[in-house]
Nucleic acid binder design. Sequence first.
RNA 1: GCCCAGGUGGCGGAAUUGGUAGACGCGCUGGAUUCAAAAUCCAGUUCUGGCAACAGAGUGCGGGUUCGAUUCCCGCCCCGGGUACCA
Length: 903
Amino acid sequence: MNHFSIFAPLNFSNRINKEKMEYNFAEIEPKWQKYWEENKTFKTTDDFSKPKYYILDMFPYPSGAGLHVGHPEGYTATDIFSRYKRMKGYNVLHPMGYDAFGLPAEQYAIQTGTHPAITTQKNCDNFRRQIKAIGLSYDWDREINTTDPKYFKWTQWIFKQLYNTWFDENLQKGRPIAELPIPEEIKASGKAAVTKYMDEKRLAYYDNAQVWWCDSCKTVCANEEVLTDGSHEKCGHPVVRKNLKQWLLRIPHYAERLLQGLETLDWPAGVKDMQRNWIGKSTGAEVDFEMEGLSEKLRVYTTRPDTLFGATYMVIAPEHALIEKITTPEQKAAVEKYQQQAALKSDLDRTDLAKEKTGVFTGRYAINPVNKKLIPIWVADYVLMGYGTGAIMAVPAHDTRDFEFATEFNIPIICILDPKDVAGRDDILAGKKCWTEDGEYINSASEETGLNINGLNKAQGIKTTIEWLERKGIGKATTNYKLRDWLFSRQRYWGEPFPVIHWEDGEVTLVEDENLPLELPEVEKYLPGETGESPLVNSHDWLMVTDKNGRKGRRETNTMPQWAGSCWYYLRYIDPHNEKEIFDVKKEQYWMPVDLYVGGAEHAVLHLLYSRFWHKVLFDLGIVSTDEPFQKLFNQGMILASAYETANGAKVASDLVEEKNGKFFHTETGEELKQIVAKMSKSLKNVVNPDDVIERYGADSLRLYEMFMGPLDERKPWAENGVKGVFNFLNRVYRFFTELENITDGEEDKEVEKLLHQTIQKVEFDIEHLKFNTGISALMIFNNLAIKKGKVTKNTAETFAKILAPYAPHMAEELWSLYGHKETLAYEPWPEVNQSLLVEDTFDYPVSFNGKTRYMKALPVGLPVAEVEKEVLADERTQKWLEGKSVKKMIVVPGRIINVVVG
RNA sequence: GCCCAGGUGGCGGAAUUGGUAGACGCGCUGGAUUCAAAAUCCAGUUCUGGCAACAGAGUGCGGGUUCGAUUCCCGCCCCGGGUACCA
């Protein structure tokens, strides 16, 4: 590799042939990629003496389609950051892997009979090739794959930890199931009762569950995977309800911890908000209502116990357990009919028909505890059994849903909260309009019960009422969460098998650690059954087990969802080849938490919530050392592309579009088309493949353009001309900085030297703040000046190569070696900014009159304000703006601006 | 409906968060080079008027605060993301 030296035969003076001076990225880039690979340049050592930095990408699902330009966006950003941090002296962990379990490989297997492992292997190889072609500085020795038994051995092991953990409400902490206190009466009831009691406390449990079922994928899916329109996130087909025996994880136990933890994280506010909304904490009270003629009480949950005086009816969900008892004989038929209708409606319909409220009277009355008034109990499907107690007190005057219902069924509306100075107050007081904001209570006192909140505001009213309820023993302050148990099994082949055996006597045991991993059996058919059983049931030898006492058992045939592998992969990178432990404790303590995590916003509540949950359990069990896994999170914006549509909005695939004089036409119909910006998609044929970009412009251009497009976190359209722009920049860099005649000895030009240091500072600041677009702009500005000046010193050229390196590493290595260095510049210290060079003697003040800038005036820095004013008034250009007017005031902001107020 | 982001030239986007709006790049216009083209180099490019100097307008719309507003406040409009009868 003698091309590393300027004294070698390839040196500049011999390069007379112009063609040799051209920027030949196709030769340079593979050369450096080979160098990095052969020298293991980016191999990370566990050198605990150095400060660490863990920079993580969301690992990809290796689809058959390969990478699209959206992948390298985040990967390039983290790569720039990683390369920069290495030059800053950090020990950087920057790994890559594959989240390779999942449906597409299995669908392909169903169609072709090809084992998903083969498809997966092929796709991973392709992804690796594509990623390496971008010149990303991963430590490839740490590559992981969630489908590798050596990896999912530990996924199964973590499942066992979840199974063997219960949540101690008092300590707000997960604890080993062995530490679970068993009540004496349970113990007395025998072993089965104890087992049942423990199963009810485990974080992982097996139970009949009303689940979402996707008939297209033949599998269940988690709440989080069902989109707003009731379709499956993976395939877009509508999901339906089904009752199946399933594994679930008790994530709601961690609701409060998951909520609290957000406060400590440097995450985008939007993602935190989404997680908060998803967890959905609400505080209020549970209140017991007596019912006329029944001994049972009806318990409701409300966030507004203060509005009890305004409760004019009650509503129970159609599935409510007490519905039969509550319903009077006269209303039985009507209620049963309503129940049937509700059962027939899918959940989707129930929410879709949100506009029209439906319901039926049960015939029964409840007694309002605050004033002993009788109020009717209705059944309506706008009350959901799955939240709170499945029953509410309805306060139509102060709740919009109750207001709609009451209006529909002519139920009294009593205003108890005076909004005071608000337009429409009279309507509100008359119960003709709903008021949900604060105000002052009226009609809220009862001598009989002793509660009086008249005159108080909302906060006081809630507090006073809850105190009253608790004193009376008919209610208590309660917190509710929307977060539900996480449905954790899928009826598929291509996933982690559960390390679980169901024995003929009903006992459930877990596979011993030494028998992990439990690998997937070979099967002939990958098609899942219609009934919700995975293809694993067909693998008899694998399925049936017998213990040493001859007891027969059957393995769990569900597999884990794709989230399982991605829940903890960041931990395995720390010690990926450890066969004895999930990872070495010392290494975990050194590397965790992840310092920077970059990926798409689509994982805001799925992966990122699940991961945090698992991590907190592992933390409680003392397996990991941090409470949260990802300290800083950054979402890259989606990359969009041009697309075309007809006048009536029909999309047209890009290969059916031709351009004429800046306008676009349909090649078949000749219709003029509108150019729009849309997501890249196969159907629109507007997907940009990084391979093509690299072939035409090189990896450094791809990297540079991905970063130059705009702010990392914003969505932005791909434009080929933009790639040409950065390619042009690299050409100019190459032409100038590889021409030895331009690289001189001696003193640097003052202007060049000053801009160089400004550029170092700007590039550094922008990398630290992930503002890569403006960093590149600064590099361009410096390059433009260097070219204009025609020469720079060798020291300047080398410094420029260093600050260019994180962005365009191939180019930078090429320059560095041409300047005579034999080692990579990946670990060269980042240049220091010489602050003294950045100090200005004079500042070019914009002088404005009444806020409008009129001329520029250079004045010495540090000139006293009075002197500045004098100089400005003495300037002849000032006179023009003073004609016929006088100076009223003068604002001088030193080093910023001068504003003369005239009038 | 609610929550969160955003709206700046022909285009992608800058603006050190109250201080020269439009950096940098694309595109376009003119010029140099070339037999010609590509490539490259030089100059110009927010809009309107003017040969120009220069003047006026201008950061979605309407108000406000301020010497000064893309930036802060109030009220709207539009686009994107999330969520949706959660009591």
